[in-house]
Write a protein that binds this DNA or RNA. Structure first.
Lengths: 212, 212, 212, 212
DNA sequence: CATGAATGAGAGTTCATTCAT
DNA sequence: AATGAATGAACTCTCATTCAT
């Protein structure tokens, strides 16, 4: 009897928490849609609450401010990409390097493709916004850069990567990847052959452009 | 008499026009400083007129709006870079391709270095601002891309550039250049050896990263 | 059986009523604390329900509005003081007038001292709030005034009080008492010798300040 | 010629300053009217700008905030009264003390009567508003109190004032004066005989109420 | 009865732009 | 041409109150 009641109470609490989490997500989703459609500055709180079909005050029950929800949104997106990159195993042996890199490129782009809105957030809306956002992006790109330069040094050690300034080279690779992502973003047609494109970008980074 | 008066009037007109042009430039300069220091949205008209030491209303005698002056500023910057790129002669013969490309890379960066404010404008402030600015940037990058892909095709024809998707590759090169520019922008120390860096970026694009 | 049930029901009803009354009082107490600590306008319903440890909606089961609970609170306080004053017996004979007045002064201040919060409510929070509160305070001070002027007239009749405008004088006495109360309120030290102060205020009102 | 131009320029500046000062005053006057009519909290910026017939933004050209204009208004009023009290000469000799005090009482009330709105501000709107206002009022009443207690001590020295706690007594006098002011404020009829009332309040403070 | 998530009217303030001088 | 006071639309955020559970 007592247990039942307890369960019931627990059930209520759990359900309430779930409901709250669901609503939070609803608002986040709506905000992402609006932010990526209109841009951060063109987006009014009014737009978000309308998109989310909630009242003005409700928004502030879940988020402190327009800035706060954007930061959270951005953090979510960055984390999601981080996880895809972090999962890559660069231990020598296993798959050929080319195959592994190809996997990473594929993964990153699949995240972007999953929702173009994410990409727009990172590549357009979050650029030059405020210092905190700058720091978040710097951190994100910094992590990617570190992973890339580490990989390059690894490659040099085992003789797969030619000698050179790994730090700088890592930035250049990152730049080409970002541009590629921006390209995918712009190209509205879904007939992009990501598989083929991934190979092109990889080969560009590996071999460069010269004939020999 | 009449002629004299006319001359005088002409002189006046000319001098007035010059004065007007000078004042315009003063305001543009001031605006560039403020925009790149505080960012587009954080910049108030009040900031610009204070920096330019003019009255509020005077601003609107020279520019239609905050948007308008930013657009003009951006156009100036983009044109300046365009000219440096457009001036490159890619006729087969002449200098070795590597040398020519190196020249172009050097020129582009010298424009950026001339005033970091320009770079910030293009790489940060103008990103995700509004549709017209988007169009301007698209046009600018589009021209760079076209020039790059034309060059690549040229290179393929004369056997210097390996076969491949020239369109996509041109974007990737552009991406690495942009990232490089952003890097130069961030690195506040003036001890950057642009000469050496230019070679690294060029070699990256030419040879890629692999050992063979 | 039926009786039993009825009894039980009655018991339940009574207990429920008591519980309800107790809760009401809990909320009133909490509200008094918060109102006098933060002031009426700085107090949010959120503050009251937190102080009372009840849910938001519960508040409205017991009181109609923020205004309503303040009114009730104020009425409670005013009534409490009224009772102390009303209880004074000024029939000629009995105690000497000075002793009687001293008793009244003592009583009033003891009410204030019992809880500074009360005093703050009357002397600060309720001032200039809204028309209904104005009316309550007017009524309260009006009753005090009437009682004072009646007393003065009585005093005149038996030759204890000098001739003069009893109406106006009553207001002046009231003013000095209010100021005194405010003084006690401000003086945070508990080492105030109310006994001595009561005499000073009484003598001030009786003899004034001149040497002869 | 030059002087003329200079004069003209000066004239312009002077006129501009005057105009600005006039407008400031217009807004202050309007604000005083509204604050005293509706109370501080019931007053919206919208009410003030409507009363002053200015645009929303104009208000903020002259005052930082709703709080700021109220503070300035209050300071003005307090200063005006201060000046009337400060001007009193209590040097022994000259006029009889009673006459001097009567003058002060008259002056203070004439300030109040000049505009009931002032009185309402001090006695009602500014009570329990915020800490800064509290400090202003405390300072104001503190100065009055100091002046009163100094005067009392002076009177004691020359044998005009009986022995007693001058500090406390000064507060009591102040209390009676405040109450009196409040009374004048409430009594909307203009047929108040301030001359007679001033005497009553003075005699109350001098002789008290008892027959002997 | 109790709860607390949801509501939405309404507030103060900012700032690009206009216009009388 | 130059000035800067004036404008008012539009914004974000608060909080007393309601109501479904």
């Amino acid at each position: 009897m007592t247990t039942a009641t307890t369960h019931e109470a627990d059930g209520r609490t759990v359900r309430a928490k779930q409901k709250r989490a669901r609503r939070r997500q609803t608002i986040l989703d709506a905000a992402l849609r609006v932010f990526s459609a209109k841009g951060y500055h063109q987006t009014r709180i009014a737009d978000i609450i309308e998109e989310a079909s909630i009242a003005r005050g409700t928004f502030y029950l879940y988020f402190d401010s327009k800035t706060a929800i954007f930061h959270e949104l951005l953090e979510d997106v960055l984390t999601r990409i981080d996880e895809n990159v972090a999962g890559v195993d660069l231990e020598p042996g296993a798959l050929p390097v080319r195959e592994q890199l190809l996997n990473t490129v594929r993964k990153i782009f699949s995240v972007f493709r999953a929702d173009r809105a994410f990409a727009k957030l990172i590549l357009r809306e979050a650029v030059g916004l405020d210092e905190e956002v700058d720091a978040m992006l710097d951190g994100f790109y910094g992590r990617l850069h570190r992973w890339l330069s580490d990989s390059l040094r690894n490659g040099q050690r085992i003789g797969l990567i030619r000698a050179g300034d790994t730090e700088l080279t890592a930035w250049l690779i990152l730049g080409s990847v970002k541009q590629f992502a921006a390209l995918v973003l712009t190209t509205s047609d879904e007939d992009i052959d990501l598989e083929q494109l991934s190979e092109v970008i990889l080969d560009f980074n590996l071999q460069g452009i010269r004939a020999f």
